[in-house]
Design a binder for these strands. Structure first.
Lengths: 108, 108
DNA sequence: TTGACAAGACACCAAATGGTGTTGTATTCT
DNA sequence: AGAATACAACACCATTTGGTGTCTTGTCAA
């Protein structure tokens, strides 16, 4: 698991279901330390930490050291890139529905 | 490379840049056989075929046999799931911008 | 019908992934 | 000061990934 490289691909970061669950979890709170995050998962603390490192490399999460714990916080802005990417295809599937409706019209 | 399992995770299918390039390529045309697709990539025919198989398992691509060639066509509809997922976070980054504007107001 | 071509199927390989446990180092508590 | 805590860093491992080449099958053309 590569956890040091900066600027990790955002699509890759988001591909893993554990990582998506992490984002969703952090969306509900302001900040959360690793310990508390780990509670919500089956795997060990180390594994969760690595996933968070990957999200951090993709700039989707901000880590902030507070005393002996590091608190993680969501940074949703990079997700805009994915939204932009996917919305390009939005036209295509809407076009498909229109075509389908035309076909249904003709059947009548 | 797992290329037989049906119902592959859509996020995973889209995570690879080669696969995204494939989707983009197929968005511009109606249908394209493997041979012509391969021209656009550095890698060999087998590799491209595998990527297409993965997209097919994610239902993002439809393969249709015509004579001795198989023509591939884009099926954009499953991408709606990703759009739904990402649009949940849209509120968060917009909220961020609002907060930022408030901060700038206070500075004045 | 024989030869050329398209592409799927398969075996193979190096590298990346996702997990584990252990060790080291700040930091807090008593 | 000393014990306990939080977590990063590291070594390790099995599985998956993304590519390669070869073989085989089906189809078109001469």
């Amino acid at each position: 698991m590569n956890n040091t490289r900066p600027n990790r691909d955002i699509y890759d970061a988001v591909a893993d279901p554990t990582r998506r669950k992490l984002l969703r979890l952090l969306a509900d709170v302001e900040e959360l330390p690793l310990n508390e995050i780990t509670v919500h998962f089956q795997m060990g603390r180390t594994a969760v930490s690595k996933h968070l490192a990957i999200l951090k490399d993709a700039d989707l999460v901000i880590a902030r050291r507070v005393g002996r714990e590091t608190r993680y916080r969501l940074n949703p802005t990079p997700l805009k890139e994915i939204q932009d990417w996917v919305s390009f295809y939005e036209g295509f599937w809407k076009e498909r529905i229109v075509k389908l409706n035309h076909l249904l019209e003709e059947k009548k």
